[in-house]
Simulated scan of single mutants.
Amino acid sequence: MLCSMLAVAGCAGSKGVKPPKPELAVAPTYVARDDEQVRRLHGYQTQLALAGSELQAGQLDSSERRARAALKLMPARADAMLVLAAVAERRGRQAEAGQWLQRAAEGSPERGDVLNNYGAWLCQNGQAVQSLSWFDRALAAPGYATAAAALSNAGTCALAAGQGERAERDLRKALEQDPGNVQALESMARRSFDQGGFFEARAFVQRRLSAAPATVSMLQLASQIEARLGDKRASDQYLQRLKQEFPQDAGTTTRVEG
């Protein structure tokens, strides 16, 4: 859920370019204040870029120091908080990660990506119902370029919250915008299977397996779907793939008879 946190080096708004000087003389205090603002922004961007690079390299201590230094320079900026949340998550400190994500989301109501991140954290930490309002806020944010991600998250979390109709609505919207959205395809396959729509579930699984490498759960589901449809040969073929591609997990598979 926090992989988007890693690409933070270029997310800090202004590029730190000093505005052109006016032709008329200006008060020295204005120039000093402007220069200080530019220096702080440049310092923030530098520390943030280093924090992101060190996070990707697994250097958590130095990444945290850099992110805190950036946040000290510009306390209202969300991207440094996202790095701190990612550091906390990698250390297994889920509650701390959530606190940083909540702070970032509450302070950046116009950032769809930040709102989506907090919603995903809530859902992953047993608060699926509460997560849905944050996905709604993300989708309402102006200029949110990756709405399919929030729709996919919202649909998946609506399933977890027992809101099947909303789940299907959001998942289908996600697939309209991004037909290869892996999470939406997986969730729709499970939704269709649970509803007894095995032919539709088969179609979603086939699309999912074409969109990205197979996983244990998808091969298991594919085998179960074929068993429900009465195609023992296809079911066994998926089980054989499971043994070949994931031998360490093949022993946990249970057959579903049609």
Score class of each variant (00 low, 15 high):
Ala76Lys: 14
Arg65His: 06
Val83Asp: 04
Arg77Ala: 15
Gly52Glu: 05
Glu89Ala: 15
Gln102Asp: 13
Ala49Glu: 08
Gln59Gly: 02
Gln94Leu: 10
Ala78Gly: 12
Glu36Val: 02
Gln37Tyr: 03
Ala85Leu: 09
Ala86Met: 09
Leu115Gln: 13
Ala51Arg: 02
Arg65Leu: 10
Glu54Gly: 00
Met81Lys: 15
Gly43Ile: 02
Ala76Trp: 10
Ala95Asn: 11
Ala80Cys: 00
Glu110Asn: 11
Trp100Asn: 05
Leu84Ser: 03
Arg77Gly: 08
Leu84Gln: 11
Tyr118Ile: 11
Tyr118Phe: 15
Ala78Glu: 15
Gln37Lys: 12
Gln45Phe: 00
Asp79Glu: 15
Gly119Pro: 14
Ala57Val: 01
Gly43Leu: 04
Met81His: 13
Val114Met: 03
Leu60His: 07
Gly58Gln: 02
Glu64Gly: 10
Ala88Met: 09
Gly43Asp: 03
Leu60Val: 01
Leu82Glu: 09
Leu73Phe: 08
Val114Lys: 04
Leu48Gln: 03
Ser108Asp: 14
Ser62His: 01
Arg65Asn: 06
Ser108Val: 05
Thr46Asp: 10
Ala69Asp: 14
Ala97Met: 13
Arg66Pro: 03
Gln99Cys: 04
Arg103Gln: 15
Leu60Gly: 01
Leu115Ile: 04
Ala67Gln: 07
Gly58Met: 07
Gln37Arg: 14
Glu89His: 13
Lys72Ala: 15
Gln59Leu: 09
Met81Phe: 02
Gly52Pro: 07
Leu82Asn: 08
Gly119Cys: 13
Leu82Cys: 09
Ser62Glu: 12
Arg103Gly: 04
Leu50Asn: 07
Thr46Phe: 06
Asp35Arg: 07
Arg91Thr: 01
Leu82Ser: 09
Leu60Asp: 04
Glu36Thr: 00
Leu71Gln: 13
Asn117Glu: 13
Leu60Phe: 08
Ala57Asn: 08
Gln45His: 01
Ala97Gly: 05
Arg40Trp: 00
Ala67Arg: 04
Val38Cys: 00
Ala95Trp: 07
Arg91Phe: 12
Ala120Pro: 01
Ser53Ile: 12
Leu41Lys: 05
Ala70Lys: 06
Gln59Asn: 14
Ala86Cys: 05
Ala78Trp: 10
Glu36Lys: 12
Gln56Trp: 03
Asn116Cys: 07
Trp100Gly: 06
Glu36Asp: 12
Gly119Asp: 11
Gly52Met: 02
Gly52Phe: 04
